[in-house]
Design a protein around this nucleic acid. Structure first.
Lengths: 130, 130
DNA sequence: TAACAAACGTTATATTATAACACTATGATA
DNA sequence: TATCATAGTGTTATAATATAACGTTTGTTA
């Protein structure tokens, strides 16, 4: 059983906002949302984001430079992430598909590289938008 | 058989540089490299990059904000991309694995989203670095 | 050749992210 | 308890990545 990690003040503020959000948040939109709480500079956001990613509590959607809360293995560092992204409404969902995850975790390249981590982003149209 | 596409002057300049490069290039490093050829502004680079991506001649490595030439289906628009990225030496390779590609192209999410495209990035240590 | 689309050149600006430095809290341990 | 290391904080400045907007030029095709 993974132990519950405790976070610092700023880290918790940032985590709370991301967890409450309905979709991915950008660093500067987080910043604007926490200025009332005394966080004034991008550095403070990015530092918190770094820690939260390291802890596996959030993920970065690379193609959007945005951050979402982890919905899978809540207390575990995530090394295998997959997302579906609607190109119309921009909704993002984390994909939790054990088969897919296993398949990719076992995947080995021909050139002898040892993989530690992967990130997969699917793009298309969601049910509503298609 | 896919027809050979012709590119405009700037597009060709940018494509040439990316194809000659040994690894991913960043937009501004491309810019610095083509200033002798009369390209002065980021816009000109980004516009060319957009067209080349659209044409499937190059790909963007999202986690690095960098661009590489396509090494697979040279004349086809790429909708299924996979890369291996060494976290130590930062070398990037496009993965051409038909099984993997088929597996992911056939993958369907439970929520009924229809995928058009995916991008997969593996991270680890290459043969030399491990 | 007229009309349209694509590409170009340019200036300005927006957005995303990091560097660097001094200070503060926390917790381990001598 | 003193002191030491580590992580976190706050701040200013700046770097790196990307797009907006506008007018001009070039290339295609009706």
């Amino acid at each position: 059983m993974a132990q519950t990690q405790t976070f610092s003040k700023n880290q918790q503020i940032v985590l709370d906002i991301i967890e409450k959000a309905k979709g991915p948040l950008k660093a500067y939109s987080i910043l604007f949302n926490v200025q009332k709480k005394g966080i004034n500079a991008p550095q403070q956001i990015y530092r918190a984001l770094d820690k939260l990613i390291e802890a596996g509590k959030i993920h970065k959607i690379e193609s959007k430079n945005a951050f979402v809360a982890c919905k899978n293995s809540n207390c575990e560092v995530s090394k295998a992430t997959a997302f579906s992204i609607c190109e119309s409404c921009e909704i993002v969902d984390e994909i939790s598909d054990e088969k897919l995850s296993k398949y990719l975790s076992k995947f080995n390249e021909k050139k002898g590289m040892k993989f530690k981590r992967f990130n997969l982003e699917f793009f298309g149209l969601c049910k509503k938008c298609k």
